[in-house]
Design a protein around this nucleic acid. Structure first.
Lengths: 366, 366
DNA sequence: TTGTAGGCGTTATCAG
DNA sequence: CTGATAACGCCTACAA
């Protein structure tokens, strides 16, 4: 049995039971040291209660002397809030999500909120993450990125008064910030059309089985643009394929094998567009001479391969989402605002627009 | 004043004070519902104490009925551990760090630990993050990535029995997992020399003012390789410049302006190498014909621009770091193991060599 | 202004 | 096996 010997500087036992942290000074120690009651210490801690300057000084000195810091766990238990925000995000290795997270970070910076991140890779992860959200009240609020919450989650959130905001996903009951994929797709297609193309294909990805619907929003946009330009729609020009460069590569190959191959293609993700570029290269096609390409998202790579693309304001979406949540946390009640952003066309070298440069001078570039 | 009316399904007041979560079932509610003492409920909760099957069943039924989930905050206070791990990482927007985080995630997956991420952008952030680590015991342990902990932090960590492991950074007192930058740089340079180059330059970045020393480790490696090949070292062939594509671009320009420009260049980061490629292009140089390039890290883009590079096992470093920490958490005592990884040469199109692989392996020292 | 006595929801200890 | 009861460290009335 270990006796607490506060005064004696006895040898610490070299080994400790797992995870048992060292004893820290508590509010009581500070109170004793300063010769005041713990209530007073608490007051100087929170700062929002009247304390006599002299008393305050004594307490602060005591805190400094003891190296005191309040226990978050105890505060959380007592205040019934953790000062933590949970974010649930699909494989955050993707540039898109990293940018969103950066934006969230920006919003939360200096607010004292910590961020706990749940990275979701499989549907099971998602369920676990969602479950965790409601079960363990680790967080005061949640940010859900590109994931569609199911009704039971929404119900639980509301029942628990746990504010949540959706980013790149939406639901009438929750605040959300999204980008208008339909419109963006239409704009990308329009751009190609404006450049004189009449055979414009679409390559896009399947929606993740457990994510929000981005692809399914782009397709109508593409079709609408076609219709507005009175270009007949062709089923064989719409290729839905894996969300990988290889997917894009395969897609373009099959498109090129058509009797009437397209002269331009709108690709629903830059990731796939990279593969499209590769396929164009292997086919000996000049880009944009023989084939114009417009990607989607404007991931980091896009700039280096000269890919024209629709820039999705990922960072800003994250930031606004974070702000919305902060707001809800302040108000104590969520207002279901829905922010909608537009993507922006970034013209580079793969579409043959105004700014025209050879795709690359480096023979290494795909 | 609000009376608790457990039975009556009264109207909830529409507005609540900020951040006050809904009342949840507590362990006491469950105990009452199951007609047992709270101790028993706690036992079935932890599972590691004998409870009669029948009692257990009753308790579990009660928990289900009430939708009960233990309060993490209360558990944290009582158990004196949060089941949370803090990671401090420089601007996690960079691919390198994202990969490391992925690795960490892998290690922590299924362990029940949550991850709170402190992204450090400025020196002030770092200090704040480090301070937070020791002050608020939000976390049971810490993972510090590419950041050099100062002595006071190390002292505090040890005093608090807060295990920490360093990733891509090192200190004798703390477990660490690093890559041997010196050796990797030498290998990269050797590769270029083997290909017949005699005028091999180095472009690298300044170390971040507050990060661990990677660049300063690569420089000696480069010099050693030169020396081993009996190639005289030239001061004008070493360019230390910003960690951006623009930096690389500027660097190559100045190198090309030399009376005897290099025929090959080892670039200490792929990010800068992108700019080098750009500068080569603008100078009308063929790559690798006129200029061979080897980058460093193997970031995602590298593959798409065909950049030969030294692959740093970022993900694995993260994973091993996570495992080390988990281990320390289990043991309750940190053992200062030092894992050292080697980078691997990935030959692509910018160096003109044949496919040649370096030996890789992990050796534990200390 | 300040001290004191609960209470937050669990875990742990100790009799029964 | 099980039920009280005391921590855990802080916050918040309430009384002084």
């Amino acid at each position: 049995m270990v006796l607490k010997q506060d005064k004696a500087e006895g040898q610490q036992p070299p080994a400790r039971p797992a995870g048992v942290p060292a004893k820290r000074a508590t509010i009581r120690d500070v109170a004793r040291e300063a010769g005041v009651g713990i209530g007073t210490v608490s007051r100087v801690l929170s700062g929002r209660a009247p304390v006599a300057p002299a008393t305050r000084a004594r307490v602060e000195a005591a805190m400094r002397k003891l190296g005191y810091h309040p226990s978050r766990a105890a505060q959380a238990l007592s205040r019934r809030r953790t000062n933590t925000i949970a974010v649930v995000v699909p494989l955050f290795t993707r540039y898109f999500y990293v940018e969103v997270l950066r934006g969230i970070e920006e919003a939360l910076d200096e607010t004292g909120y910590a961020l706990v991140i749940h990275s979701v890779e499989r549907a099971a992860d998602r369920d676990r993450a969602f479950g965790d959200l409601v079960e363990s009240q680790r967080a005061d609020g949640a940010l859900i990125v590109s994931l569609a919450p199911d009704l039971s989650l929404i119900e639980s959130l509301r029942a628990l008064h746990l504010p949540a905001v959706l980013i790149d996903s939406s639901h009438p009951a929750l605040p959300s910030v999204v980008v208008d994929h339909e419109r963006a797709a239409a704009e990308a297609t329009h751009h190609l059309l404006r450049l004189g193309h009449r055979r414009v294909a679409l390559i896009d990805r399947k929606d993740d089985p457990f994510s929000a619907e981005a692809a399914s929003a782009r397709i109508p946009g593409y079709r609408r643009a076609l219709a507005e330009a009175a270009i007949p729609w062709r089923a064989e020009y719409e290729v839905i394929i894996d969300f990988t460069p290889e997917g894009g590569q395969t897609a373009l190959r099959s498109l090129l094998a058509l009797p009437e191959p397209p002269t331009a293609v709108f690709v629903g993700s830059d990731t796939q567009a990279l593969g499209v570029l590769e396929a164009a290269r292997e086919a000996g096609l000049r880009v944009p001479g023989d084939l114009a390409i417009v990607g989607y998202n404007d991931i980091e790579v896009a700039r280096y391969v000269g890919l024209t693309t629709m820039r999705v304001p990922m960072r800003e979406m994250g930031r606004r989402g974070g702000e919305l949540l902060l707001r809800a946390l302040d108000l104590g009640e969520v207002e279901a605002v829905h922010l909608r952003f537009d993507a922006e066309l970034i013209v580079r070298r793969t579409c043959g627009g105004s700014l025209f440069r050879m795709p690359t001078g480096i023979d290494a570039i795909g």
